[in-house]
């Protein structure tokens, strides 16, 4: 378990009221280019204590658009090269200025394999912010890559373009294997869940009240019986959480996914993987 989980629980306890208060504060803020940032030292201390962090050492790279086309759906790709893959323990995605900065933590299992690890997902970004990927390797060392992203309003953006569709089909899942990023040893797949991932900062369109946060908080992906990764997630993941990931090929490439949301609902799917 990573240290980040208490942070998320704390935030959950504070609950929707604090998130709403956060919205009020940011909604009125004029987006501006982040100056010398003062949020990171505090966040860093909370998440990682006094541990040193190696910056931009190539152990992890984060790819994000400099200017997001849609602040509610910002595509992010995290890469750990094959040379580090076997030693990758967990990977956290942090959006510094979001009300709930820790977007997700992925903890790798044996089925993540020894090759390159690639994870792509989509996040909400509430104001111009640094986005950070922090990798913990098996020796306990921390490695970080940072990108600055210009985007604003992602956390309070209304659910989906089509409000009625946001809740319809909640829990519907799609799992597919991909032809990309494939080597004889590495496979790639994508899991999608229909879920509004309410941030607590969105308005109920009928009552005019804020919708309580309700989001996918955990996901476990297995190949056969072995874990590829487990994820803890928060409100910074876009609605309809969408995760592409690499995993090691094996005799049994059947993938299975179990996800849980903050209402305690469980969503599962499985699919026979390609190759063998």
């Amino acid at each position: 378990m990573s240290r980040s989980i208490p942070t998320m629980n704390t935030l959950k306890r504070i609950g929707a009221a604090a998130l709403v208060a956060g919205l009020m504060a940011v909604a009125n803020a004029v987006p501006s280019v982040a100056d010398e940032d003062d949020l990171w030292p505090g966040l860093r201390k909370e998440l990682y204590g006094a541990k040193p962090i190696l910056e931009a050492d190539g152990a992890v790279t984060l790819d994000a658009p400099y200017r997001a086309d849609d602040a509610a759906v910002v595509p992010i790709t995290l890469r750990i090269p094959a040379s580090i893959g076997a030693r990758a323990k967990s990977l956290s995605l942090i959006i510094e200025k979001n009300p709930m900065p820790l977007a997700a933590t992925f903890t790798f299992g044996p089925a993540a394999g020894n090759g390159e690890h690639v994870i792509s997902t989509r996040v909400r970004i509430d104001m111009y912010s640094n986005v950070r990927a922090v990798l913990e390797t098996d020796d306990g060392a921390l490695h970080m890559d940072t990108k600055f992203v210009k985007a604003a309003g992602g956390c309070s953006a209304p659910a989906l373009k089509d409000a009625a569709e946001a809740l319809a089909g909640l829990g519907k899942m799609k799992l597919r294997t991909l032809e990309t990023n494939q080597t004889p040893l590495t496979q790639e797949a994508q899991v999608m869940i229909r879920h509004p991932n309410y941030s607590g900062m969105q308005m109920n369109q009928v009552t005019g009240l804020y919708i309580p946060a309700k989001y996918v908080e955990s996901m476990e992906v297995r190949r056969g019986d072995e874990i590829v990764f487990t994820m803890t997630g928060g409100i910074s993941l876009s609605e309809n959480p969408n995760i592409r990931f690499t995993y090691a090929a094996a005799g049994d490439n059947t993938l299975s996914v179990v996800a849980k949301d903050t209402d305690g609902k469980t969503f599962t799917t499985r699919q026979a993987g390609s190759g063998s």
Partner: peptide, 20 residues
């Protein structure tokens, strides 16, 4: 009939961003 809901969900953003 969906205008009221859609517009009220976006009201704050529409006003603050465009005023800015």
């Amino acid at each position: 009939h969906k205008l009221a809901a859609a517009l009220s969900a976006r009201a704050e953003r529409y006003l603050s961003y465009n005023r800015d």
